[in-house]
Computed example of a mutant assay.
Amino acid sequence: MNVLAAWELGGNWGHVARDLPVLRRLQAMGHDVRYAARDATIAASLCASIGIPCVTAPHGAAIRRMPRGLAGYGAILFADGFGDAEILGQRLAGWMRLFAEHRIDVVLADYAPAALLAARMYGIPSVAVGSGFEIPPDSVELPSFLTDADRDAPARRFSEGLVLFNVNRVLRALGAAPLERLAQVFQGARNVLTTVAELDHCGARPDATYAGPLQDLPGGVAAHWKGTTGPRVLVYLRGVDPVVGHVLRALDAIGAEVIAVLPDVARRPDVRAEIQVFRQPVRFDGLIETADLVIASGSGTVTTASIAGVPVLVLPGNAEQAMLARRVTQTGAGMSVDGGTAATVLDAIDRLLRDASFRTGARALAAKYTGLRMESAVQTVIDEIHNVSSHHS
């Protein structure tokens, strides 16, 4: 079986960390696998280290950072070229050329809406894998990113209708059946959500396949706790905004032992030696489970910590992360600080370390999902790949 993993939207290490364990397992089973990645600079060296061919995913428009106030999925797709028929048509054609060149049997789509559309047109099955945000519910009206959904509804519906009109215009021109609703852009023949119901950005879905967190980067650096007397805090944050500095200074002030993964920080902050700072990927196995607190923003790390029974402080930097932060707060396993000051960040860290209710909430979540591990998540994705392949042949 020839499998192509496709990654189009989003950035950083999370998508590669989710895709490569699946491709590596498929490769070990004797399947032919390759990776078409949005950011080949991130993926290529990691793919090369484990012998997986990697190419740049077909694209048409520059992918812009999602603004904090963005209201809905229509705006994301519009900014990614779905609002331009010529760009979208070229992108779909690029994917179909890849399918033909490598005789692809199944597409594994990681936040790759154009690849999913192309697979549908080309007549090959697909499995969509991602968070609850990356695979929204297949509903007539897509969820709002904002808490005041009624206020943004007119603009959101307009953008979604405009993108759907344009998508169907392209599909008809290429001889394919039109879509009934925009949500279908994100749907594979099967969907696997790499989270749990309580942390689904869009709310729990009774019919969803929740595999739990899936992330493992080959070649990640091994880090170890030094065994000092302070609380153990694992930090994984992107960006260089003031909040990162607030976090490190707060942890320095309370004498915490810290492992901080900060890929975007140019130089080591002026903090105690007990604060270990890494710019490269770090292997989290054995670290998260033994931490007293995890400070992060991304779905993979937050979900992994939560079902390991560790309280989480979420520091959202965009609408997607804000949606996740609200779910974490609702579980009682953590809290969030949005755009906080040094004082609010320090207060949140102090509360999470001192208030036993957060640890109780996290342990309750962990007890519910004791069987979910990275290996089981990989197997869930592979089972779905085999299912769609067998039904198609």
Rank of each mutant, 00 (worst) to 15 (best):
V22Y: 05
V22A: 07
L23K: 09
R24Y: 06
R24M: 07
R24K: 09
R24C: 04
R25H: 14
L26H: 13
Q27P: 03
Q27A: 08
G30I: 10
G30E: 12
H31M: 12
H31W: 15
R34P: 01
R34N: 03
R34G: 03
A36C: 05
A37E: 00
D39A: 04
T41Y: 01
I42M: 02
A43C: 08
A44S: 14
S45G: 10
L46A: 13
L46Q: 10
C47E: 01
A48C: 08
A48P: 08
A48Y: 04
A48Q: 14
S49M: 06
I50L: 13
I50M: 11
G51E: 10
I52R: 04
V55A: 03
V55D: 01
T56Y: 06
T56R: 14
A57H: 11
A57W: 12
P58F: 06
H59R: 14
G60C: 06
A62C: 05
A62W: 11
I63A: 05
R64V: 08
R64K: 07
R65I: 03
R65Q: 12
P67W: 01
P67T: 01
R68D: 14
G69P: 04
G69M: 11
G69Q: 13
L70V: 15
A71H: 05
A71N: 05
G72R: 02
G72K: 02
Y73L: 00
Y73E: 01
G74K: 03
A75V: 04
A75G: 04
F78R: 07
F78D: 15
